[in-house]
Structures are given as structure tokens and as C-alpha cells.
Design a binder for these strands. Sequence first.
DNA 1: ATGCAAACTGCAAGTGACTGTCACAAAGAA
DNA 2: TTCTTTGTGACAGTCACTTGCAGTTTGCAT
Lengths: 219, 219
Amino acid sequence: MLMLSDDRRQLRSGCVDDASHGATGGGARPLRDRRKLDSMREIQAVAIELFTTRGFEAVTVGDIAAAVAVSDSTVYRYFGTKERLVTWQDYEPELQAALLRRLAAQPPVDAIRDAYIEAVAPRYDQSQLSRIAFIYRTPQVYAATVEQSYTQHAYLTKALEGAADVDELTAGVIAGACLAAVDVAIGRWQESGGNTELAALLADAFDALAHAAPTGPPQ
Amino acid sequence: MLMLSDDRRQLRSGCVDDASHGATGGGARPLRDRRKLDSMREIQAVAIELFTTRGFEAVTVGDIAAAVAVSDSTVYRYFGTKERLVTWQDYEPELQAALLRRLAAQPPVDAIRDAYIEAVAPRYDQSQLSRIAFIYRTPQVYAATVEQSYTQHAYLTKALEGAADVDELTAGVIAGACLAAVDVAIGRWQESGGNTELAALLADAFDALAHAAPTGPPQ
DNA sequence: ATGCAAACTGCAAGTGACTGTCACAAAGAA
DNA sequence: TTCTTTGTGACAGTCACTTGCAGTTTGCAT
């Protein structure tokens, strides 16, 4: 769950690079960016409503485009894939910054947990519930988020190797275990109807990692 | 990585139910099944060779069908999706049996580890290397395996709830952490060119889970 | 204001994954 | 052999997604 960057399809057809500031004259382009973000949010809202009403497969991208009165190509240029209409979100940089800052100051697992508590937990309110619930209810969409967490796992592994004193295999395992904890916590948050604090669920999920170690050698 | 059952597409168009024994007269149907398995193995071999040579996107399912001299529909009936041409494997029942047996007799994490060491490690030899390496090198295909492990995670979670004395959240976290360890171990095996024993890598990866617990409360 | 370069948008014509249907062929039982 | 079941191929269709083109809009500089 949650992503630090885009999947290969996004990368190929340059899209979803929100807040991409001009490389031409050097100045910012606030108006265009704002309109694009607004447009993306509107399209996403409509998409999620249609999806939850009629089901993911029953709604075509053309349906969504028509409902928002833009062309199909625009939807694809913005989101790249149908799944990304659901999974897209815009707070990735903050998570990355929190991660970097805390990895330098805390033990690695604590750092990851607290970065999520700091940067993503506050975002999970009722307005996000239908989106997140839909992700967890739709395997095809859930898989798309996992594809994104591919990149995230690699990033975390590298960060851990630098911050903590562990080899690559250990770093990979720790990163994977932490992402699993985050995933379970968000899953539970969604199951609770958004009524449980995500921060508390994250704390509990990470505590549960204490029981994930084997007790003896292989038999 | 590794799967216990199929994704939704498989389920919809009933395929890949290897070793499905007749429900009609009650007798076995060895010849047909053997031919089907042989055929699947041949198609998979050709597919992986074409994919590794020309790239996943550059090869169409029609190309593969033509190379093996079967129709496109047959390929889809056998594998369901293009990705499944790579990820398909035929030893899932054994893993499930080992899991069940060991969960009744060992601590849960040890049981999962040892079940993988027993049921999947012996299968990972040089003949599997190009297949596994291709999975880890191709995000789209890797994502498909994760989509399959969605089911596996749910299965493991339920098994843990029954076998160990833990609540659902803890069971989910343990299952996710174990799957992460398995995934990292297989990834390392593939990176090593298949020259390191997967059983040893699995043992190391599970040992690394000991470092995945947080050391203090959230800050 | 006005002109210019870059980016945005819609249109249209693809490609290819995947589904469903039908007729036919091959396998197994009687 | 004959009947029934099941696997197979040909075919047509849907839809996600891509690409190229032309017209418009934006932001900046003059």
C-alpha cells in the first residue's frame, strides 16, 4: 500500500508528475498545475463513485471521461492506467521526507513506523474511506498498489542499509515486514469503517512484529 | 511469490485446475491430464524463452501460440493470463499440505519457514532459474505473483489464528512478515544465479525477522 | 496589448489482451 | 461401433491503452 513513485507505465508516457515545475524559463506554473490537480481530483471522485456503484469492470474509462466531460485520452494522460484512477494520491513526498529524517535519528523499525504515523495516518479520514475500502475489496486494484510498493520496498531496503548496520538480506526482510505491518494496519482501518485511529493500528501492527521471529532452527 | 491458488481471472474462466480428476463416472483420466500438463510445460518453456529474448511486451500471446502450434484460445484456456504463462507452477498442493502438517506441530513462524524449506526449496534448481529471474526482473509479472499471494496471505492468516493463540491483526502481520521473508529469500536466490541453497537463504531470511520488531513506543 | 513557444486537449486510428460462441474432433464408456 | 463428454480451433467482439495530428490555451517576454 502507499507508494513512493510510479509504475513503469506512468514512467513511459510521462504523466502524473504532479507539481512538475517548468524546466523552460525557470518560473513556476501555478495556474496550470492547480487546474490539473483539481481536474484529477474531480475525475478520481467521479471514478470512485461509479466504480463503487457499478463495479470496477462494469465501468469503462470512456464512461468516466464522459461523466466528467473530458476525452478518454485526457484521463489516460493524467492517470496512465484504470487502476491508478483509484490508487493515485498526492502526499508521497511528505512520507519520503519523514522517512529520511527519522531514519537518521531512530532505530530503523521505529523510524519507519513513526514516519507512517506522522505522514500518512493524519490523511486517513472519512473522506478517504471509500477509496481505501475499494482498493482492499478489489484484487485487481489492490495488486496495482502492490506493484507500486515494489519500488517502495527497494527504496526502504536501500535506506535501511545506509541507516542501520545490517546486510542487504536483513534490510530487505525488515523492509518487507514493515510494509506488511502497514498494509495490515490500513486493512484493519478500512474494515473498522475508518472508526479506529490509524496511528493506533499502526502501533499495534508493528508491535505484532515481535512475534514474527522463529523460535528455533529449521527441522 | 509462490501461490496457493488462482486469481480472479482464473476462477472466472475455469482453467489451470491441474490434476482435476473426473467428477462424472468417478474414474481417473490419466492420459488427458498428462497430455495437458506436458502441453502446459512446453508452452511455458517456449513463452519464457521468447520473453527473455525479446521482452515481455514485445511478445504477443499469439506469437507464443504460433511457436507451439496451438491456437490462442488454448493458451488462454490453459493459463488465463499472459503473466500466468510465467508464474504458473504445479507444486502448490504439496506446500499447502506441509503447511497444515507443520502448523499443528511447531511454533507458527517455524512451521511456515520449515514448510517452505521442505516443499518449495527442493524445487528451486537451475531449471527454474530463468523463470524466477524473469519474474523478479519484470514488475508486471512480479505484481501478478503478489496478486496471487493475496490469497496466500489470507490463508496463512486464518491458519495462524487457528494454530497459534493470536488475534487477527497479529496473525495478519506475522503472515505478511513471513511472506516478505520468503520473497526476499527467493529474490536473493535468483540474484545469486541459483548457486546459493534456497533452504539456507530461507533460514537466514527468517532469522532476520528477529530484527523487525520496534524497540520503543511511537514518538 | 501582442507575439511566441510550450504545453494541453480532443480526435481518430490503431494494437493486443481477453471473452464468448459455435462447430468439429478426439477420448472414454457402453 | 455408437453415444457422451471434453478438448480444440476459428471467429467475432469488447475494452484498456498507445500514438500521431491538429487546434487551442497558457505563461512569458517584449
